[in-house]
Design a protein around this nucleic acid. Structure first.
Lengths: 232, 232
DNA sequence: AATTATTCTTACAGTTGGCGTAAGGTTTCG
DNA sequence: CGAAACCTTACGCCAACTGTAAGAATAATT
């Protein structure tokens, strides 16, 4: 039995260069009980946003450095949470473009606070039920169900297989040390039996072979393994 | 291995009493490749909508018989797909109310066709990744992972348990005949062994007992079983 | 080429969870 | 009370997953 008690504290990240509006938004959201962070430096907005681990991104389009559109695309390509675009630009082509690039909703300023809150709540509800999809290259892994998606195919991994795949995907295209795999699988980096990792790796490869993807896992002799998921 | 080939044909159901607008919408959507059905009789709109097995519902609020709000609530309580409200009523409280009752998006007429199409596409994308959640009363069942959600708790059912729960939930609050349970579980309504159903029912009840929900399955002597999921 | 370290593969066994069968107990109703 | 309907428990089978062990294959080194 699993108890999913209480509501997670949602971290909303505001990306808006107008200080007044930013603080107003922050007030509105905090009164509603959300945890809020604002981006104030727009030199490297992407890194700043990601560092906040956003549960939702409130995004303006007119930004000093990188445009909101670009931010939108980059965040979505990393599978980052719901994005709500809030902007003064009310051209329909802006809305279409933003939605096309992955924004999940589009509101125009001025916006009634209750409307904003309702839309935020809606997105939260939707995303709460969504599977946790880890993306890397051509691979997509549902960390909850252990389903692996590649192109049009999918297959079900066992728990060990899923863990290994997760670690490989998170690190890709870097090399994963054997030590780390041991740590993730058995909690101890002091790996007693070299073999057990290899056995599980063989099993993962055999499973991946069902969709001709086994060769994507490369062994780096003396170090560990590496996932090559971009070419074939 | 499972191949999820091709894109399903999305069935959009239009619920709109103005004939002209209805046909215009139908045109727009069909040009885009959607399969469209319209509700023309509003005597029993809920049944009519459900019969269409909608992949998305385009809903007006001002309807002759049952109001759009009520339709919205009922559809969502049955876990029926994305609902996009399209209405001439542009009061913010209508929007809030609709979203509150489960609508997934809210657009006001007149609406630019491209905006409508973009929003529809967005909802499709979101729902494509969503788990298939069957709702009935206080129960929610993920048909894919066999997870059952009740209030703030959740537990994992086995395949048989999930199937039984599914049938019970779909029928609720009606009675499910033993015959039908046999059919769903073992493909044959000619049930050879009475006992096996009872055993599985005991198991389901034992599982539900973990969250004190066993008593929600009532035995209807000589007929079958019934799920009571609304009160406690 | 021979040696050695590293990695891979296969087979086996233990564990777990889900399921059907069987047998006996309990409840309900006339 | 007695029979029909229903419930419960225990048993054994099967499939999936995992760790262990032993030997084979591969790569690096001398």
């Amino acid at each position: 039995m699993k108890l999913s008690k209480g509501v997670d504290i949602v971290n909303i990240v505001i990306v808006e260069d107008d200080i007044f509006l930013r603080e107003e938004l922050q007030n509105i959201l905090q009164k509603e009980g959300y945890s809020v962070e604002s981006i104030s430096s727009f030199d490297t907005p992407l890194e700043a946003i990601i560092a906040c681990k956003p549960g939702l991104v409130l995004l303006d389009l007119n930004l000093p450095n990188l445009s909101g559109f670009q931010i939108c695309r980059h965040l979505k390509s990393k599978g980052i949470g719901p994005i709500l675009v809030l902007t003064a630009r009310n051209q329909i082509r802006d809305e279409l473009h933003a939605l096309e690039l992955g924004a999940d909703d589009f509101l125009t300023k001025p916006c009634h606070p209750k409307r904003l809150l309702a839309r935020i709540k809606k997105l939260q509800q939707l995303y709460a039920k969504m599977p946790v999809l880890l993306k890397s290259g051509m691979f997509q892994l549902d960390l909850k169900t252990h389903e692996l998606y590649v192109a049009e195919q999918s297959l079900l991994l066992s728990e060990n297989e899923s863990t290994m795949m997760k670690v490989l995907m998170q690190a890709a295209p870097s090399i994963v040390k054997k030590e780390q795999l041991f740590y993730e699988l058995w909690g101890s980096s002091a790996y007693v039996d070299q073999n057990i990792l290899q056995v599980n790796m063989t099993r993962l490869r055999k499973t991946l072979a069902k969709i001709e993807m086994a060769h994507h896992i490369k062994t780096i002799r003396g170090v560990g393994y590496q996932l090559a998921g971009h070419d074939s």
